[in-house]
Design a protein around this nucleic acid. Structure first.
Lengths: 237, 237
DNA sequence: AGCTGTCGACGAACGCCGTTCGTCACAACG
DNA sequence: CGTTGTGACGAACGGCGTTCGTCGACAGCT
């Protein structure tokens, strides 16, 4: 009809050539994942919607569904790309504990370097994407190199991954805009709670609200790795 | 106009008297929280919306905002009510480790007895509601009774709470409809992944997918509590 | 008793969201 | 040159949390 005439009948070189399709670089999984990660970095997880990703690519939300299936799948892909940057080293029985700690620190840093992306990691708890499985595989190798039996290593990798993603999420919600303001708000709140009902919490307010760098994270890390090591033959010394 | 005429002009006894306001029991925070918890129990967190809560109470979503402020606040109230049922015992230095474990098991059970309510607990990580703070207070007392210094106890209560809510959430997503079908699906998936890239995971599939009751949870619990105990003077024996 | 002020209830609407559908331009292929 | 398949895309669907303005009922005062 009219539309057909005005569309195909129109001089195509008007929008053909090298001008009309300047940003018509074809969509792809990779471009979509990159755009999504860019949005998370710039505006946080709350701003990440299919419409927003489409807009970032100069198109609409519907176009994305030819490549990603669902938002959940997109989040998995974004997470996997972040995990892809984590470098893995082969397990060394002599220093497996430090290797494990290092790997978890790196994973945590990778998550925290993308705003509150850790929120997605908490929900998608079971690692099914390639690079997430690479990390689990490497960690399993380290735990086994440390002499842990199969079941302990299996539970251990689950426990360590849970701890890392959960603390990363916790840290990302805390330090949202500015960490110091959050700490102050918390301390103010502590000053208002009734001391007679919560004697412990009020008297320990300083210790409870302390948040110096990664001290909290390292504290749990030490306990977990040491606890796992003690399960190994000769590891309890 | 028409509506005014049909409302005030209409015989009020038609809907007045003792019949028209049969369910017009006035709204209240408590009734709203109860309704929300009922919905979570019956249909899960996905079904919990302000509109759905309103419907449960024979009204609309807008009416709720005179009592709860936001959905987030409602979730906090629901969580707090669940925490209210957890019974706390005074700290006993002689058996503090078992007390802590017991308290965490009870908390986990409380969360798991309400479908996937644990999802809300993961997001609202910092306990600010009264009963949540009661639990933290009790746990702090137990850790201090065990001889832990202030900072260790403070980090410890955070670590233990994080572990409990995170594992509860994990468990609630797994056993959504029926746990066995989930396990089978996982095992099927393991059979498809390439053994040459993931030799550890494929060879340890049985250990990784094992999920016998609370064995997983108890495994981490033992490590954490033992690890904390070792921080206390004389606890490392 | 009558008036008035206050407040809860509530329908409607706003601006989002994820996702689906039908259409349509266009490139590759016969 | 025709056919066919495929990705892009606008529009729409149903749902969400929340806000706004109105309205009715009741408390307290005169």
């Amino acid at each position: 009809m009219t539309s057909a005439a005005s569309r195909s009948g129109w001089p195509e070189h008007w929008q053909g050539g090298a001008k009309a399709a300047p940003r018509r670089q074809p969509l792809s999984r990779e471009r979509i994942v990159d755009a999504a990660l860019r949005i998370v970095d710039a505006e946080g997880m709350d701003a990440l919607s299919m419409r927003r990703v489409g807009q970032e690519l100069g198109t609409g939300a519907a176009s994305l569904y030819a490549h990603v299936g669902s938002k959940e799948e997109l989040l998995e892909l974004v997470l996997d790309q972040v995990y892809a940057d984590i470098e893995l080293e082969p397990a060394d029985p002599a220093r497996w504990q430090e290797q494990v700690k290092r790997l978890l620190r790196t994973s945590r840093d990778a998550l925290l370097s993308h705003r509150d992306l850790a929120r997605a990691a908490v929900v998608a708890n079971v690692p099914v994407t390639p690079h997430a499985m690479d990390i689990a595989e490497a960690m399993l190798a380290m735990l086994r190199a440390g002499g842990l039996d199969e079941q302990t290593a299996a539970y251990g990798v689950d426990l360590l991954g849970l701890y890392t993603t959960a603390t990363a999420f916790e840290a990302s919600t805390r330090g949202g805009d500015d960490t110091e303001a959050f700490g102050e708000r918390i301390r103010d709140y502590f000053a208002t709670i009734p001391a007679e009902r919560y004697p412990m919490m009020t008297s320990m307010a300083a210790a409870l609200t302390r948040n110096v760098g990664d001290e909290r994270f390292e504290f749990g890390l030490d306990i977990l790795v040491a606890g796992l090591a003690r399960q190994a033959p000769g590891g309890g010394a």
